[in-house]
Structures are given as C-alpha cells and as structure tokens.
Simulated scan of single mutants.
Amino acid sequence: MTDITDGAGRARRRGQGELEAQVLGALRRAPGPVNAGWVQEALGDDLAYTTVITILTRLYDKGAVTRARAGRSFAWQAASDEAGLAALRMRRVLDGESDREAVLARFVTALSPDDEQLLRDLLERPEGPDGPEGD
C-alpha cells in the first residue's frame, strides 16, 4: 500500500482497493486510451511508475481495464464503471463458492425489501438486467 496524507496533513495508508478506484477514475476521465505515465500524472500523487503498472495489471487481470499494445508499452482504458467493477467482484465471490444456490439464497434474504424489489424488477425486464442491448 502507498502512504497518502489525510485532510490534516498526516500520513495514512490507502485502504484496500482505494488506489484501484483512483486509477479507474483517472482512466474514466482520460480522453481515450492512455499510457501508465499519463495515469501516474493524473493521480497527482508521488506514486512510483512501477506501482501504477502493478495496479493497472491487477485491474487488467480482474477485467476492469483493457490494454492495447502501443509501441513497447500499453495504452490502458477502463472497461467498466464503478457499478461494473462491483458486479465483477460479486461474480468472483460467487464463482469461488461451491454452493452457488446457498450463497445466492443468503444474499437475497439479506436484502432490504426495497433492494429485493429492485432485483425482482431487474430480473423481470424482457431485455435483461443490463438494458436493451445487454451491455
């Protein structure tokens, strides 16, 4: 983890996933595919280039970013928004469990009535929960 300062100027450690979220945010604000140096500058922190590459590679392995060869390096781009990344994490947790039915049942029974109704509405859409094009 990397040290950053809080509002009072004290050093603190980034929470797990915080740096990934910052990198994804920078990529979503990018004018298009960008290199790791651009991401490093966009974050405005004193992050090492190797740290940025490590985070980008982790995000790539998770399917949260895409990359394309650009010379001897890569051009990176966000593959999804925050909701897409959260859905990816949820799917990975589900995929890691042996009893999918039990996990899904426990998840649904733990939802608030409003969230349960929202889930029902999403599942009942004729085009599916992702919209008309399934995107």
Rank of each mutant, 00 (worst) to 15 (best):
A30H: 05
L104A: 00
R14C: 15
E127C: 02
E20F: 00
P126Y: 00
E101F: 11
L43I: 09
T109F: 03
G96W: 00
R100V: 13
L85H: 13
S98D: 14
A36I: 10
V39F: 11
D130E: 11
G96N: 01
V34I: 14
P113A: 13
S73P: 01
P113T: 03
R100E: 13
R69I: 12
L119Q: 00
D99Q: 04
E18Q: 12
F74I: 02
P129L: 03
A36R: 10
D95S: 11
S80I: 05
A11R: 11
R10A: 07
T109K: 04
T5S: 13
V23N: 01
G96M: 00
G25L: 07
E133T: 11
M1D: 07
L56I: 03
L43V: 06
A64M: 06
D6M: 09
D114C: 03
R91Q: 15
R72H: 14
Q77I: 04
G63L: 01
M90C: 10
A48T: 10
R12L: 08
G7A: 15
I53F: 05
R28M: 13
T50W: 06
V93D: 06
A42T: 11
S112K: 00
E82N: 06
P129H: 06
G32P: 03
R125T: 04
R58Q: 12
L94C: 00
E41H: 07
L19A: 01
Q40T: 07
G7Q: 12
V52I: 15
R69G: 04
D61M: 05
D45T: 10
E18P: 07
E101P: 00
L111P: 00
G32M: 15
D61C: 10
